[in-house]
Design a protein around this nucleic acid. Structure first.
Lengths: 198, 198
DNA sequence: GTGAACTGACTTACGAGTAAGTTACCCGAG
DNA sequence: CTCGGGTAACTTACTCGTAAGTCAGTTCAC
């Protein structure tokens, strides 16, 4: 009889994507440490055991979110490393923001500050962060062109990555903004600052 | 007889400071959500109930850390808002870094991303953040001098605060650096960037 | 009828918070 | 100076709630 049990006819692949979408939002909003599997299940309209049967564990679910977000971002950012140095940084930011458009919380998942050290989750996030940092560092090196020591370059790379985080964070607080409007704002600010520094 | 019980003769005031120092480190490293009262007690070489008798709760302990960090930072940053616009940003950064020198994790506590919304802990952190943001916003407004719309200014303020966070974060990964060396690095980078933008 | 999609109800671990008691320091009375 | 008693500084050993993870199934599509 119509208890709540039994299949609903949703194929695994589709259900997995749906769970991932919900999970990214929960992980992005509350961070890994505060995220609750029960809440994810409720938000997805299914029960907890189904999630476990598809993703094994909280870590497994987070890893799946991470891979989707990380691989996507690395790919898009790599593709943006072509133009002349002057505009490359802006191109990269545009690529990131465009990639994040459909799922803005992907960035928060990748840069979650609550991942316990020494776990697979932490290590995997670190790998993706390192890849993005390496891409940023390449640009920074070229920009500085030997005019600064390696530690200064490392610091600038760090500043660059965090500026992107800041822009994405601001975007999350201003949902009505689009990828284009954000990029445009940053471009305006960049030229205003350059002018002020004259 | 000499069980582990009974007073050790440490006066409350002194013990409280010691607990706070340990707690800031734990909260700063692991973030509020992952921090454990048991671990703080162990690291401080005392038992959990003593912490509770002095600070009431995990929230109470965190609040105490917050007030020490927040009040200190707000005061020092306010004092740095005097020079001409050109150097004010650098002065502010220098003030922050100098203030953080004895307890670098204060910044991480103030900007902990895992504070549950709607709690006293979250609200208090927000108040201090807002104060610092307001100081930053004042500088940004003066710098832009009406040449940008309010949303652009808001974004720039956000970028500024996150850049400070980034610098502090880099510092935590390079413990051998001093307040002065960090400030010097940022100054060098700022002038290099200004030159590149020419 | 068989396997994939699903669930209600459980167990378990861990961390916040507490009850009840122990010891050492301090200070006033003799 | 010294001998109690009161209180501040402590601890061991608990309770209790919450969230991860699991068991034993039920139902539907093919």
């Amino acid at each position: 009889m119509a208890g709540n049990t039994g299949t609903k006819g949703v194929p695994r692949e589709e259900r997995e994507q749906q769970i991932l979408d919900v999970a990214v939002e929960e992980f992005g909003r509350r961070a890994y440490a505060n995220a609750s599997m029960t809440r994810i299940a409720e938000a997805a309209g299914i029960s907890k055991p189904l999630i476990y049967s598809y993703f094994d564990s909280k870590d497994g679910l987070f890893l799946a979110c991470l891979h989707r977000a990380g691989a996507n971002l690395v790919e898009q950012v790599e593709a943006a490393q072509t133009g002349p140095m002057l505009s490359r940084a802006l191109d990269t930011l545009a690529a990131i923001v465009r990639t994040l458009e459909p799922r803005r919380y992907d960035w928060a998942v990748l840069y979650d500050a609550t991942l316990p050290e020494g776990t697979a989750v932490h290590d995997t996030a670190m790998q993706y962060r390192k890849k993005l940092a390496a891409l940023g560092a390449a640009g920074v090196t070229e920009l500085l062109a030997g005019k600064a020591n390696p530690d200064d370059a490392s610091l600038l790379t760090h500043l660059w990555l965090h500026s992107v985080s800041a822009a994405v964070g601001w975007w999350l607080e201003h949902p009505e903004e689009t990828a284009e409007s954000i990029t445009a704002r940053v471009m305006r600010l960049a030229s205003l600052l350059a002018e002020s520094a004259r």
